[in-house]
Simulated scan of single mutants.
Amino acid sequence: MYIDPKLSRRRILIVTDAWRPQINGVVRTLESLAGQLRAWGHEVSFLTPEPFWTVPVPTYPEIRLSLASRREVFLSMARSRAHHIHIATEGPLGLLARRYCLERGKAFTTSFHTRFPEYAAARLPLPEEWSYGYLRWFHDPAVATMVPTPSLRTELSGRGFSHLTLWGRGVDGVRFHPGEKTLFTDLPGPHLLYVGRVSAEKNVTAFLDLDVPGSKIVVGDGPDRAHLERLYPDAHFVGYLHGEELAAAYRSANVFVFPSRTDTFGNVVTEALASGTPVAAYPVTGPRDVVTDPRAGTLSEDLGAAVRRCLTLRRADARALGEQFTWAASGNQFLSALTPANAPAKLARAI
């Protein structure tokens, strides 16, 4: 449903356990959303781990969990005087925010960003269904749970989630755009690019194992980087890039390879498309919702074949598809799904 985003100025509180200095799709999505909403005149505030003591996640120290107390979170939320409360993550802050809303009779919305069950199962002996049971419990009392793609909505509905609504993503088409190749010119081509966390759940080895000509370039960092650098000495690991350097990396690549099978959307896919770089990926949730034009990328269970076909595609067609993803459209979907905090709240099965 389209609504005029400027008709009713709103005070929105977003609660998130994922925040700077983390570099991931959740943080980038929330920051981009806030920028769009503020441009429309809405007041957006965040409750994040920043003001609280935190502890690192075992085996993943770049992610830190908040040690905020119930009192601290409840006071912060009360002082926000928010018209709308959105809980973006299911971690410690999200749990306390959920409890605040249920105890105070406040209506709220949530969003599903990350396949935590699959990520946890990749590192711990934790059955996926246990994790999905927790997530169903967490999201159940929300008035709406926002998901980024139709295929994820279908999948979660099949797992027993309810009141699911779409909230898509945008891309900064000014920062990410086609242009001259300025990076990787000293490496043999074609230049195949991966951008994202270097961790087990991202399936980076599927990219590094490809038997295709050219240079494989990995932009990003994570717990598996050192191990993979030793195993794949011919690949080029450049660490995190930001701003114009990151945009130049996308523009300078011949193909963007997205090997993940567990992402819910894949913001990096839209950034590559907006940069005019064709995308090779598996036909799974996320890529199949984004790479909808075969002229802009290739989805195949044979990732090597997808890369080879992408080398024949026109960059202009990738850019044209990327331009369809805007933060204005994303922001309007988000506003449409919000509910007033003083509306009748759903009753939780358990606080």
Rank of each mutant, 00 (worst) to 15 (best):
I3Q: 10
L7Y: 05
L7C: 03
W19I: 06
W19E: 00
V27E: 00
E31Y: 00
S32M: 13
A34Q: 05
Q36R: 15
V44Y: 00
W53A: 11
V55E: 06
P58H: 07
Y60W: 12
Y60A: 11
A68I: 05
R71F: 05
L75M: 05
R81N: 15
I85E: 13
H86Y: 09
I87Q: 01
A88N: 09
A97F: 02
E103C: 04
G105W: 09
G105R: 10
F112I: 01
T114A: 08
A120D: 13
A121P: 07
A122D: 14
P127S: 05
W130A: 13
Y134N: 04
R136F: 01
R136P: 00
V143R: 02
P148E: 11
P150C: 02
T154L: 05
L156E: 00
G160N: 07
V174D: 13
R175M: 13
H177I: 01
L183A: 15
L193S: 01
V195G: 00
A200D: 10
V204P: 07
L208S: 12
V212T: 06
K216W: 07
I217A: 02
V218M: 04
V219M: 03
D224Q: 15
R230C: 03
Y232W: 14
A235F: 14
F237R: 11
V238G: 07
Y240V: 03
E244S: 08
E245S: 11
A253L: 05
S260W: 04
S260K: 13
N267D: 12
A272T: 05
T277W: 06
V279F: 02
A281F: 12
P287Q: 14
R288Q: 15
V290T: 10
T292N: 12
R295N: 12
G297Q: 14
D302C: 11
L303C: 07
A305T: 06
A305F: 00
A306S: 10
A306T: 08
L311R: 14
L311K: 15
R314H: 08
R314F: 03
D317G: 10
L321P: 00
L321M: 03
G322M: 14
F325M: 02
F325P: 03
Q333I: 01
Q333A: 04
K346M: 10
K346P: 09
R349V: 09
